[in-house]
Design a protein around this nucleic acid. Sequence first.
RNA 1: GCCACCCUAGCUCAAUCGGUAGAGCAAGCGCUUCGUAAGCGCUAGGUUUCGGGUUCAAGUCCCGAGGGUGGCUCCA
Length: 621
Amino acid sequence: MVMVCLAVATSVRRMYREKGGYAMEEPGKQTNQLQALRHSTSHVMAQAVLDKFPDAKLAIGPAIEDGFYYDFDLPRALTPEDLQEIEARMKQIIKEDHAFNCKEVSEQGARALFANQPYKQELIDGILGGGVDEDGQETVQAPALSVYSHGEFSDLCRGPHVANTKEINPNGLKLLSVAGAYWRGDDKRPMLQRIYGTVWPTKEELDAYLHKLAEIERRDHRKLGKELDLYSTHEIGGAGLIYWHPKGAVIRETIENFWRAEHRKRGYQLVNSPHIGRVDLWKISGHWDFYRDSMYSPIDIDGMQYLLKPMNCPFHVLMYKTRTRSYRDLPLRWGELGTVYRYERSGVLHGMLRVRGFTQDDAHIFCSPDQLMDEIIGVLDLAFFMLRTFGYEQFDVELSVRDPVKKDKYIGDDSVWQTAENALQGALSTRQVAYKVMPGEAKFYGPAIDIKMRDALGRGWQGPTIQVDFNFPERFDLTYIAQDGQERRPVMVHRTVLGSMERFVGGLIEQYAGAFPVWLAPVQAVLIPIADRHNEYAQRVASRLRDAGLRVEVDDSSDRMNAKVRKAQMEKTPYMLIVGDKEAQADLVSVRLRSGSDLGAKPLEEFVALARKAVDDKNDG
RNA sequence: GCCACCCUAGCUCAAUCGGUAGAGCAAGCGCUUCGUAAGCGCUAGGUUUCGGGUUCAAGUCCCGAGGGUGGCUCCA
């Protein structure tokens, strides 16, 4: 049973962040029941921590996706042993059978109750002052203060909670980790210790969740990237810089070829631009003022300052300006796999997902305002088509628009914004894409569509982004000659579909758990001769397969066939072709799939057709 | 960047109280020629991330740097 004491609706923090910098709304609605369970468990944890550290200062402890946390200011750093101890104490408290009681308190009452709790005092200030609440949400009106107690422990809280600690299943509980977290998420304020935990109604659900965590670890692109020899990073080479090994590079090349072909089909032209440019360029674009933290220090060349590019747009803009553009030229769709470099703070770097140098699948569309909607539709079609090709089927789409009350934060007048928002919205509804409007999420230079996709495990990843930009055309004075002979200002659309090759491939490794579909697999088939006398036949078959455009290797090591199968299996090779006397005599290959299934002996040409089809269909056949 | 933790052979990990670095896999060589997830043997492989310090003695303790992990903040 869930107790709700106040009429104030509970809002758990809905946005969560996962390692690697992809964020999205929590999938599936967490029930109030589950929220209450988790939130109540965080209170129990706070009590256990107070037992151990009577001087602990408590901050906040909400329910989150899959669990809960609580932030503490403690006299010393917590160790893994502390966590075990705290968890044991929690289980004890749960069994002590405490009812959760709620009461409303006056300001004085609350201040007195939390006299030694400075963070709680600040929360009280916030609640009464109509500032921000414990989830960092702005409070509209000052609600009453409420306190939830169980046993000896009381916490400022608006609930809801379960009725009794007995409702928490001690076997569904586990503390997971300790991490630093700034008070109020503000890096100017004290660093607190955050304990993460998870709790479920039953042990089975806990086990399932822990199993999922193990699965996430199993798929980790950093682990698989090393095991499958896809990429490396180097301490001596500098942090956040990716080295693509041959097998990783093949995957990337295959994706890039697909990307180029698909863009050409859809009326894009591909361009290339330099990696550095004079600082003046960035001053005009505005990045020098607004984006400098993410840019590297200037390089002195002949007394002039150059910057490593953090984005491609200014270069495309310069190309646009090389001649007078007519309305007949528009839309211009210029794509580039452009490598950019951005300064990222050392603590955020993460495998291929968060790096300092990466290649964006960038494109800029220059068009007239009345072409905007069709252009957006074109991008949407392209984006969904490409992502589905990589097995992403579920998307969460956001339309980021202006904050209606702070219109002065944005450049461009109302009518342009209206046109742009209408175009984005119109494109989405034309394609019947469900979306969520995100007021205040627009960039200062224009509204945008952001698409997030879910992977095979249901995790969210940052996907395509489509941004309308009024700023660049203005600052660089872009024009085109309209039908009536007048100079007009084009609209510029920035868009990526994959994001960056690094992040996208990192995500794909996890999406496929390293078992890439045939068209992407670095090695598509391995020939496994049973004995040395079959090597020659294996080479002949391999060369025939290469002629058919397949990526093939021959394992002519002196290993036994079983070992060769195992090796290919661990490399997640789609096709293992076993050849012995029987096959060599009749132009056959015995096909084993990495799933373990044995397709038996097939005529060579039949296998070629089968494999070609899997490649052409971009699936596993 | 901040908090905590970590860094030993190509990889995964050992090394008691501070006492002078070891295994499996991978690699190289040899034997084996085998029918759907590991055949056998031998060899080589180390400035214990780097730089200082304490100590008779440092993988181990201390300081600094680099890199990494989990978070916070931020982001393609």
